[in-house]
Computed example of a mutant assay.
Amino acid sequence: MATSMDELTMSQLGSLRWADMRRRVRATVDGRDVVDSPAPLQVWEPYRVVGCYAVPVADVAVRLVNSQTVDASVEHAPILTPDDPFAIHTTPGTVYDLRAGGRTLRGAGFRPRDPDLADHVLLDWSAFDEWREEDQTAIGHPHDPFQRIDCLDTSRHVVVRVGDTVLADSRRPTLLLETHLPPRHYLPREDVRMDLLVPSDTVTVCAYKGVATYWSAVVGDDVVPDVAWTYTDPLTDAEPVRDLICFYDERVSLTVDA
């Protein structure tokens, strides 16, 4: 019987997983490199869909202090995302604070009780001021070596509505495909009723696409919050969708004709 790769990946969600990242990574605190590793791993604790960097303890230039042994947490969501704190550990191990200069990064280190990860410490991405992969700044979270995005020109006819009002009508979208996520259609601004969109204060960060800003739709007396977004200064892989508008399929009526 053939194997679905999506199903195969999800079937391992409850396992402790790791991958060799094959790049140099560095993390800074107050302008100083406190982590510098030519041999990082990416580690996914059970039920996490986004991993963290794990480096040999010798590649951490600050002290690991205040060790605390923990058991695997049994009270957690079925799937853990970057919104779930690093402090939720779903495998047994030892938690450490990192003392960097005058700062203490509480609980920022974790050493799983697993022989394949012996002498490695998992690091809390959010505890550090900046991360770099080689000399390139990384944002959001570590890049997953098994995830990618593709931006494809297409002639599909995309229509976006709220109720009976058309917000966008385009025959020249860019289709953005991201591993394990639903397809998204990015539309030229000329094909969008920008007069019905109001800028929002919402900002999100994607490790692969960059920083997104949002709009809400105002149609008569109805307001649909954060219905659309754009990347005005995208990362390299998302350059084809620069300044294009994408709508949440879940918040509008979006139809696509082949």
Rank of each mutant, 00 (worst) to 15 (best):
A108M: 07
R48G: 07
H89Y: 02
P183L: 02
G93E: 02
V57D: 11
Y248D: 05
R23L: 13
G109I: 07
I88D: 07
Q136W: 10
T204Y: 10
V162Y: 07
D169P: 06
R48Q: 06
V50E: 11
L244H: 10
T91P: 02
F247L: 09
R17A: 02
P56A: 14
L187C: 03
E239W: 01
V60M: 12
L16M: 08
R48F: 06
P38S: 10
E133V: 14
A127Q: 06
K209V: 01
R113I: 00
D201E: 14
P40N: 07
V166L: 03
L177P: 00
D6E: 13
G140M: 05
A100N: 05
Y96N: 06
I245Q: 00
E178I: 03
E250H: 12
E178P: 01
S216Q: 08
L176V: 13
G140E: 02
D191C: 08
L181E: 06
H89A: 08
A108C: 06
A217W: 04
V192F: 12
P145T: 09
A127R: 11
L123M: 09
I245L: 06
V198A: 07
R161H: 12
S200E: 01
R251T: 04
A39T: 15
Q147S: 15
V252K: 08
D6F: 12
Q68R: 15
W131N: 02
H180F: 13
V43G: 03
P82G: 05
W229K: 05
A217R: 04
T255N: 04
V25A: 04
D221S: 14
V29K: 02
A118I: 07
E130L: 13
D30F: 04
T204N: 05
D195M: 06
S15R: 15
F146Q: 09
D221C: 03
A27R: 04
L254A: 11
V29H: 02
V158Y: 03
T179M: 02
D195F: 10
E45H: 03
E134M: 09
V219M: 06
P240N: 07
E178D: 02
A212M: 10
Q42F: 09
T104E: 14
V74Y: 11
S11E: 03
D201N: 13
E75F: 14
G163F: 02
G31K: 01
H180P: 00
A207C: 13
T28F: 14
D129H: 11
M194V: 12
G140A: 09
V256I: 14
P56D: 11
A138K: 05
R32W: 09
V95N: 09
S216P: 07
W131A: 05
R251G: 04
L177E: 09
R156F: 10
F128Q: 03
